[in-house]
Simulated assay, not measured.
Amino acid sequence: MRNIKDLVLYEADRLRKYKHIDSLCRQPVDWPLIERHYADMMRVAVSIKAGKMTPSTVLRRLGSESTKNKLRFTFRELGQVTRTLFRLKYLSEPDLRRTIHAATNKSEQFNDFAKWLVFGGEGAIAESVRHWQRKVTKYNDLVANCLPKRHTAPTSLFDFVP
């Protein structure tokens, strides 16, 4: 994990001490805040699941920098707990690290291949209109998926000749 020394892990419980990870845990979790707003968080989750509210709307509302938005701080606190749990799982499970590493490499190879396929402008999309940018990206991905799969980006078009 890159920059592991900069990770902030949150203490799940101040009363329990863990021999090997206590030095990594820097801040306590505000469990009373999460408990106080649990019903509100569930209401938001059910609204998204039922299609009454889009996730982008929720993010826009929670993304405001208002100090009065307690639900925003509650979701942030819960997110810190979730990230800490994932980081601890990542550190303790070599198979998970291998799987993530392999998937990341595969994705990066595809992106390198798709970037190589873009004609002109060396991968830069000249359009400043969002829907045109999306079209260019989708068409490029379509072309990349139609061509034979390779482990590395080809060096010339002649690499595709059988």
Rank of each mutant, 00 (worst) to 15 (best):
M1A: 12
R2T: 14
I4H: 03
K5R: 04
L7V: 01
L7W: 00
L7A: 00
L9K: 01
E11W: 05
A12M: 08
D13W: 05
R14Y: 11
R14N: 11
L15G: 08
K17E: 14
Y18D: 10
K19I: 02
K19P: 04
H20N: 03
D22P: 05
S23M: 07
S23G: 06
L24I: 06
C25T: 03
R26P: 01
R26M: 11
Q27D: 13
W31G: 00
I34E: 03
I34N: 00
R36H: 03
R36E: 13
Y38H: 05
M42F: 05
M42G: 07
R43N: 12
V46G: 01
V46Q: 10
I48P: 03
G51F: 08
G51N: 10
G51W: 03
T54Q: 15
V58L: 11
V58C: 05
R61D: 09
G63I: 05
S64M: 12
S64Q: 13
S64D: 11
E65K: 15
T67I: 13
K70Y: 08
R72Y: 09
F73D: 12
F73K: 05
T74W: 00
R76T: 14
E77L: 06
L78A: 10
G79H: 05
V81A: 08
T82I: 15
T84S: 12
Y90N: 07
Y90P: 02
L91Q: 04
P94H: 06
D95E: 08
R97Q: 15
R98A: 13
R98Y: 09
I100H: 07
H101I: 11
A102L: 01
A102Q: 09
A103S: 09
N105Q: 14
K106D: 14
E108N: 15
F110V: 07
N111S: 15
D112H: 12
D112R: 15
D112K: 13
W116K: 00
L117P: 00
G121A: 14
G121P: 08
G121C: 14
E122A: 08
G123P: 04
R130T: 12
H131M: 11
W132F: 15
R134Q: 07
K135R: 10
V136P: 00
T137V: 06
T137R: 08
Y139M: 02
D141E: 05
L142F: 03
V143F: 01
A144G: 02
N145H: 11
L147T: 12
P148T: 12
H151D: 14
T152Q: 13
L157F: 10
D159L: 04
F160H: 10
F160N: 01
